[in-house]
Amino acid sequence: MKNRVDFIDWLKAVGMFLIVLGHYFGEPFDQFTQPIYPKQLGVAFFVFVMGWGLASETRPQWQVVYNRLFPMYFWGVVIAIFISLIFMLTKGHPAITNYLPFIGGINVLGNFFPSNPTTWYIGTYLHIILLWALVMRKVNVTLPLILLVLFCEIAIRSIFIEFERLFTGYMLVSNWITVFMLGMYMHQQKDNHNNLKALLIMVLWALLLFTWASLLNPLNITQTFPFRLPVEHSTLISSLVVSVAISTVYLSNTLLAVKFFSGIPANPVVRFFSRNTIFIFIGHMPLYDVAEPIALIFVESGWGKRAIIVFIMYVGLAVVSELLHKAVNIDKLKKHLWLRLN
């Protein structure tokens, strides 16, 4: 049993909060991470955590792949079926695109998200794990290798931006590979609780965010999704510049988050949200139609309504997830199926 590492719990809990917050409170904070959206930093945190964890694995590779995929697929399929039932009753179709991530992750080839937008990540998650199992497991990740991969990442992403296939460029492994390799490279990173150091990093991080916003706010950047493009974007050079900026935001913020949270002890609340991130991630978008009527009971519109929805989606779904895990022993099911497969 590995010793629990506080900064990993922090990255998962905060990353999930950024994702939920970003879906309902986007506008005021978009300026700090352009040309991406703040919620995408949450995904970057999770990808880093994957790299950090997989780099330390000593178990057989396919057992690791199975252990990683089982809970994601279990809850993903359960929620997809639930959504299909709701859609059949209300819209007359089963929201079939929600099942694409479970078919080899083929959803990443389409220039669109599934009906439940957050499930795009399941396909990417599968591809990252397979990349590790088939290629990266025995690779010695060095800084020169990371720089080489970063160059390739920027080039590949810029091509997808140039040909206006933004969703595909966002979902492919090539958009996340450098953050993943950074996690592998830093797999020996441990907690180093130091309040003063954490405070200094927090100040540095805040300066970076405000400086970045000050530099890019004067530019005429649109609200295109999932990458924000300049209004006058029309050349390959422009696509390259945008791609460089995207990688810069991913890497700088992820690295500062790791260093900051390494200095802060995690508490039971952080660990509670950390262990329930899968269910929150998959469920928080399709359940909006449930959360909005509840919010309307208290506030009709505005930030108050959004805050209540965020609370329901983050805290409420974490509680539901905890209760479901107590009712359904996922680990027991996972072990039983693994024995049957072997």
Rank of each mutant, 00 (worst) to 15 (best):
V5T: 06
W10C: 00
I19S: 07
I19D: 09
L21S: 11
H23C: 00
E27R: 12
F32N: 09
T33A: 11
P35W: 08
P38H: 07
L41F: 02
G42C: 15
F46A: 08
V47D: 02
V49Y: 15
G53F: 03
L54N: 01
A55F: 02
E57D: 08
P60H: 01
Q61N: 13
G76F: 00
G76R: 01
M88L: 13
K91E: 14
G92F: 08
G92D: 14
P94Y: 04
A95G: 08
T97K: 03
G105M: 03
L109G: 09
N111E: 03
F112E: 13
T119P: 00
Y121C: 05
T124C: 11
Y125I: 12
L131H: 04
W132V: 09
A133H: 09
V135L: 11
V135S: 07
M136N: 12
K138Q: 15
L148P: 10
F151I: 09
E153V: 05
I154M: 02
I156F: 11
I156T: 07
R157H: 02
S158F: 01
I159H: 14
E162N: 11
E164T: 06
F167Y: 11
M171R: 03
M171N: 05
L172S: 01
V173Q: 04
V173S: 07
S174D: 14
N175K: 06
W176D: 01
I177F: 05
T178G: 04
F180G: 00
M184H: 06
M186P: 01
D191Y: 03
K197S: 05
K197T: 06
L200F: 15
M202R: 11
W205K: 07
W205C: 10
W205V: 06
A206D: 05
L208I: 07
L209I: 14
F210G: 04
T211V: 14
W212I: 14
S214E: 12
P218Q: 01
P218C: 02
I221K: 12
T224Y: 00
F225M: 12
P226W: 01
P230S: 13
V231C: 13
S234F: 04
L236D: 05
S239V: 01
L240S: 00
V244P: 00
S247H: 02
L251H: 09
N253Y: 07
V258M: 13
P265H: 06
N267F: 01
V270F: 03
R271Y: 02
F281D: 04
H284G: 08
M285V: 15
M285A: 11
L287E: 02
Y288K: 06
Y288V: 07
A291I: 09
P293E: 06
A295M: 03
F298D: 02
S301T: 04
G302R: 04
G302E: 05
G302Y: 09
R306G: 13
R306E: 14
V310Y: 06
G316S: 10
L317R: 04
A318T: 08
A318S: 12
V319S: 11
V320S: 13
E322Q: 07
H325Y: 15
K326C: 15
K326I: 15
D331H: 12
K334V: 01
K334W: 00
K335M: 08
L337E: 05
